[in-house]
Structure formats: C-alpha cells, structure tokens
Nucleic acid binder design. Structure first.
Length: 478
RNA sequence: CGGGAAGUAGCGCAGUUUGGUAGCGCGCUUGCUUCGGGAGCAAGAAGUCAUGGGUUCAAAUCCCAUCUUUCCGACCA
C-alpha cells in the first residue's frame, strides 16, 4: 500500500518517457534478460512462448502454400558471401567473422550467417536441373547475427530469431506472385493473430534490400508515432541465379536461370506487440499469441472450498482448449492482479467465497479493465467468446490509431507538421531519390513505402515542384 | 560511431566529495496470522561493491583502461 512499495514495482509511464517504458516492460514482464555480450539477449520463456505461437501460425500457412522447412549452416565462407556484389556490399559492415578453427587460422574466414541467400543459392545450384525441379519453396527458422551499433531488446539485436523463406521459380510471373502472396500472409498474421494493422507497400529503390530488384514491407505504427518495419518480401529476378550459376532446362529444352524470392519476419514482431498494445500497467497481449490466455486467481484461498473451486475452473478452461494458469501461490489477490496485468494476460478469472456463494465467477478483461460477473456454468462459453472479442477490440483500437495518423501533405510545412504529430505523412512524389534524401536531411523521416493504394491527390512533388508520379508514405522509423 | 547518465544482495537505492574493510527498503527462506487491487508480526539467508591494472599501511571510495546498460543523435532490419 505504501507509495514506495508501489514505486519499486512500477514502470515508467508512457507519456513520461516512452523509450524507458519499453525498457522497463521487457525486463519486468520477464520477456528477456541481457547477456554479457552487447546486443545478444536471452529470450525468456514468456517471450519465447509468444514466438512459438507466431511460428505455429506461420508454419501452418507456409505448409498450406507448399513450403518446406529446412536448416542451413550457421557459417558462410567469406568467399561465398562475396559472390553477389550488391549483397556483400550491403552486409559486409555488420558481419561477425570467425578466423580460427581448432586452433588454426582459417584461410577462408567463416561469417556467422547474417542472412542465408548465398547458402540457399549454393545448394539450389546443385539440386535444380530441370523445370520439373521447380518451384523450390524452402523456409528456415533460425537465428542470424548482424553486428549492430545500437541495439534494443527485440527491436534491434546483434542476434535475432527469424524465419527466412527462399524460393526459386520457373517464371518471373510466378516469382512475383510468390513475393506478394507471402506479404499477404504476413498481413494476415497481423490482422488475425497479433491484432496489429500493417501498412503494406513497396520499398523505394533507396530502401530496398541489398541485391533485390523489389522489396515489399509491412510497417506497423508505434504509439510514439514512429514506424516499425515488421517484415519484408523480396523479388530478386535472376540476379543471384546468374551470380551462382543456377540453371535449369526449360520446357523448350533451353537452359534458363530461375526467378527467386526471399521473405522474412523476426522477433522484432515481439517489439511491435509490446508497443502497439501495451499501457502504463504493462503488457497487453493479443489473446491468440498470449502464452497464458486466462489466469485463475483464487481470493481468500485459505477458506474451505476456494482452491477446489479454482482448480475446477482451471480444468474446465483447459479442457475447452484455453491456455490457462492457476496461481495458487500465497501472494495476496491484489498482488496477483497487478502481476498478471504487467504480464498482459488477456483474461483474469477471479473466484472467491462471495462468488461461490452466488454461483458466479468474476472475469476481468486486460485490454479495457472491464469486470463482468457470469454464472459459473456460463464461464467457459464466455471466456471462449471473449478471446475473439478482445482480439477484435485490440485490432480496432490499433487500426483507429493508424487511420488517425496518416496525414496527406501538400508542402514541406505540412510534412513537418504531420511528422510532428506522429505517424505517416502521405505525399505525392516525383520519384527522384534526391527528393527522398532531401526529406530525410530536413526531417530524419524516411520513405516507408509506396502504398498499394496509389490514389493520387495532387500532381506536384512538394520538394522539387516537378510532376509527381507516385504516392509515398514518409515516417520516422525505428 | 559521437554526446550525456549509470553499474554496490533478485529489484530500487544510500555510502564515493573527505580512503579505514558495506547498509536501507522491497523481495527471498521459516513460522503464525492474513487474503475482493501489490498484507502484518517475528526470526533468518544472501554482496569477488561490473572487470582488469595502478596509487596506498589500507580502495566501493583516488588514477588509468576495458566491458555492459540506458537516453539522445548518425548508420543499418
């Protein structure tokens, strides 16, 4: 009850310092811990369980669409990573390289994989001989290492977990279709699982992936007004295939290079979940990925009948397929309420002598704080219905915020104002990189994407005054 | 990589100015009483003072270097 006590447990308020709030939450909700090497974090069970739910959903979708999981080596010989020129230029600055093996200097030092395009290509060169070998639709779950200067838990690490799909196709059209299809699956993940609305679109030439012809991304908007690139898909054309001499004999008997894609999402999604939904009491987890969807808290648990009643509720919920946890520890109910709010558990189930006497159960929703009393026999059904309902409420809240933070701008003054407010400044653009660079110089905002909806609302570029060709979204970004 | 701040028990901190061998609150353990929004009493356990050097009879404290965290920039997912 004393202020000091509360202060010890509390987290920084979002409005006081959003960055500090984030740092407090990831630690206090037991999502991660720091290791002794900068940028390498420990994914604690509570965050890893969320990642596993993401994996479950994506694996299902990947397999439905014909993809197979594989596992590639952790190291890439330097000479191999150098095979594609743009690719190595993009990644060289952030490679971690091993020079010694078994006490001997290595002639061709080994790079700890920052991304696996080159490994897949080396393998594909061996196994793709005929159009009958296509498409090759491979995905792998792994961690990659990139030596980042500035690191933040989940948002940017020297090592992070991700999935990377790498596919090879007979035709350009098929590869382009794949690139967009996987972007849609990522968008579905946000809408149906994470309760995060993404802004989808194509990256500008400046922002695209090293070695890609086209890059598409999903961008999530954080409450501090900054965008977070949350996943990308790439169309490579035949660039890598030519560099790696991958050829197949086509239906007409001629040798051709296949068309390639890659796509990935990472544990950065955890950062998006934390920021998009969290509040001053801690995490608010979307119910479909919450490791614990409902927590049962007995009140006055030493009184006869309370613990048995709580255990029965736990059993009923478990049997109904809800991820449920019963907390029988001898902490007070108030302590438990705060604890599971901090950890973002979507539904709290309270059961005490009063409830038992009345034949009811008290439910509380984490996202709204709303408390409801239901008859005991209706509890399971109510909880089952609350899960999609809470998901929907969380998605709609985030979607409303997104819509309110897309501002059409006609000149640089409006652009400034829009960025000041936070979110996306939607602008007509001539397409010149010079104008893109100018905006970055003036505002630090970058082009997030050319949205798929290219409905023009003007015809001049606010930077140079020339004829505008495209709609582009600028925002400050993580 | 540049500029600030920090590192002492699991967490939050005091002690550093003025060197003398480490303390407070919470948490943890045990017992009893409690329990509808972070409980009370009592008795306990727990710290290579980030790391490595140096100065000194003596270093958490002074000096040098390094590592890590954090905030703000630059760069990149």
């Amino acid at each position: 009850m004393e202020n000091k006590q509360i202060k010890n447990q509390a987290i920084t308020r979002q409005e006081d310092d959003f960055a500090q709030w984030y740092t407090d939450v990831v630690k206090k909700a037991e999502l991660m811990d720091y290791s002794s090497v900068k940028g390498f974090i420990i994914y604690r069970p509570y965050s890893y369980a969320i990642w596993e739910e993401i994996q479950n959903y994506l694996n299902k979708r990947f397999k439905e669409t014909g993809h197979e999981n594989v596992y590639m080596p952790t190291v890439i010989p330097t000479s191999l990573l150098q095979r594609e020129k743009d690719h190595i230029e993009g990644f060289a600055p952030e490679c971690l390289i091993a020079n010694i093996g078994g006490g001997q200097q290595l002639d061709d030092p080994l790079i700890i994989t920052p991304t696996s395009e080159t490994l897949f290509c080396e393998h594909y060169q061996k196994i793709i001989k005929s159009y009958r070998d296509l498409p090759k639709l491979y995905n792998q779950w792994r961690s990659v290492v990139r030596w980042e200067k500035t690191t933040r838990p989940f948002l940017r690490g020297a090592e992070f977990l991700w999935q990377e799909g790498h596919t090879m196709h007979e035709t350009e059209e098929e590869a382009r279709t794949e690139t967009l299809k996987m972007l849609e699956i990522y968008d579905d993940l946000g809408r149906d699982v994470l309760a995060i609305p993404f802004m989808k679109g194509r990256k500008t030439e400046k922002e695209k992936f090293a070695g890609a012809l086209e890059t598409y991304s999903i961008e999530a908007l954080m409450p501090d007004g900054k965008a977070l690139q949350s996943g990308t898909t790439h169309y490579f054309g035949q660039g890598f295939a030519k560099a790696f001499d991958i050829q197949f004999q086509g239906r007409d008997g001629k040798l051709e290079n296949p068309y390639q894609t890659s796509w990935g999402v990472s544990t950065r999604l955890l950062g998006a979940i934390i920021m998009v939904h969290g509040d001053d009491n801690g995490l608010v987890l979307p119910p479909y990925v919450a490791p614990v969807q409902a927590v049962v808290i007995p009140v006055a648990q030493q009184k006869p009948g309370v613990i048995p009643a709580a255990r029965e509720l736990e059993k009923l919920l478990r049997e109904a397929g809800i991820r449920v946890k019963l907390d029988e520890s001898d902490k007070t109910p108030g302590w438990k309420f705060s604890e599971y709010e901090m950890k973002g558990v979507p539904i709290r189930v309270e059961i005490g002598p009063r409830d038992i006497e009345n034949g009811v159960v008290t439910l509380a929703k984490r996202n709204t704080g709303e408390k409801i009393s239901v008859k005991k026999e209706d509890m399971v059904e109510t909880v089952k219905n609350l899960i999609p309902q809470i998901h929907k409420e969380m998605y709609e809240k985030a979607y409303k915020y997104l819509l309110e933070h897309v501002t059409e701008v006609k000149d640089l003054k409006e652009l400034d104002k829009a960025l000041e407010k936070g979110g996306y400044a939607k602008m007509m653009w001539c397409g010149d990189e010079a104008c893109e660079n100018k905006i970055k110089e003036l505002t630090t905002a970058t082009a997030r994407c050319l949205p798929f909806n290219q409905m023009a609302f003007g015809d001049t570029c606010p930077v140079c005054g020339k004829k505008a060709k495209k709609v582009v979204l600028f925002a400050k970004a993580y």
